[in-house]
Amino acid sequence: MKKIIIGENTVKSFGVGNEKHNVLDNVSVYINEGEFVSVMGPSGSGKSTLLYAMSGMDGIDGGKVSFDGRDLSALSEKELADIRRTKMGFVFQQPTLLKNLNILDNIILPSMRDNRKNIAKVTEKARALMKKFGIAELENRNITQVSGGQLQRAGICRSLINNPKIIFGDEPTGALNSKTAQEIMDIISEINTEGTAVILVTHDAKVAARTDRIMFMFDGKIVSQLQLNKFSGADLDERIKKVTEKMQEIGI
């Protein structure tokens, strides 16, 4: 299976002098095409930093990160921005949508630079995504007129507008109640089933249990991994048990 992301001995440091420490300490990772991966660990273990490094949102101080065969550190800021816009999608705990745009315009925004002559086509796609994920009636509302779950669905629609090869999620269910979190995970699982790779940072064993593989981080290192089969739905309780047992074993 082809690897879409390869991180080799990646290092990311913060601080200066005696206060300098490695948030990523020679971390090597890979994500296969179409794979569903989660990253777990205590606060400060480097989970989000790893996510930002693998997506090129944050530079690294050592090692190498390749995306789809390209060394991210060798690219210009414009080239990096183009890759993130056209090949990657991002879903955060708090969707970063613009207050001065309605929901529909927020969703199509990432496509506007490359599709100014095809606004109608992009809008049609955005409406199809909104219908698919149950927010079709919200296109003219602003972001203060919808619920957190609806806002997260809009963020997911935006992340998919350019047909990305991979979705990066940083605690995408962290601010949601359990019912809405399950609905969002259903959507993300469906996206993965359709062929898009997904990597999520999460503290939630229920979320991690729905992924194919879990990487556990501690003090800037990946200390263990847990391989799970494709999620069937019926085996959730057993999967959660495996995840929590591994968390207890590691001490997180």
Rank of each mutant, 00 (worst) to 15 (best):
I222Y: 11
K2N: 12
I199P: 09
M1F: 12
S224K: 15
A181E: 01
M185N: 13
K246M: 15
N192G: 09
I108Q: 03
D114V: 12
N192T: 08
E194S: 09
T180W: 02
N140F: 03
D61W: 06
T193H: 11
V146T: 11
I107E: 04
R127A: 05
E19S: 08
L104I: 11
A175N: 15
G7V: 10
T123R: 14
M215S: 10
M247D: 13
V223T: 09
G41C: 04
L200Y: 03
G15Q: 14
L176M: 10
I167V: 12
A81N: 11
F168Y: 15
Q225F: 04
K2M: 03
V223H: 07
V243Q: 08
E8Y: 08
A120T: 05
G15H: 10
H21G: 00
N106R: 07
D105Q: 08
D71T: 11
F231D: 05
V207C: 09
V37G: 00
A209C: 08
M112D: 00
N177W: 08
N18K: 14
V91P: 15
A136C: 00
L75A: 04
E238L: 08
S232Y: 13
I83G: 00
R141F: 10
D212W: 07
N177P: 08
A120Y: 06
R141Q: 13
L104P: 14
T49F: 13
G46T: 10
I60N: 02
V29E: 05
K221L: 06
I83W: 02
D204A: 13
G169S: 07
D212C: 08
M40K: 13
A205G: 13
K3G: 00
M130A: 11
A120E: 07
E33K: 15
L151F: 01
H203G: 14
K131S: 09
T193Q: 13
A120N: 01
I252P: 09
R153N: 00
M185A: 06
L228V: 12
Q248P: 03
E79K: 12
Q248D: 14
F90G: 04
S159T: 12
L97A: 09
D235I: 06
L72F: 07
M215G: 03
G169T: 03
L236K: 04
P110R: 11
D237A: 12
A128W: 02
M112K: 12
Q145G: 02
S13V: 10
G134L: 11
L129C: 05
L101I: 03
E79M: 04
V122K: 12
G251Q: 09
Q145M: 11
S48P: 14
I250K: 14
A205Q: 13
N163T: 10
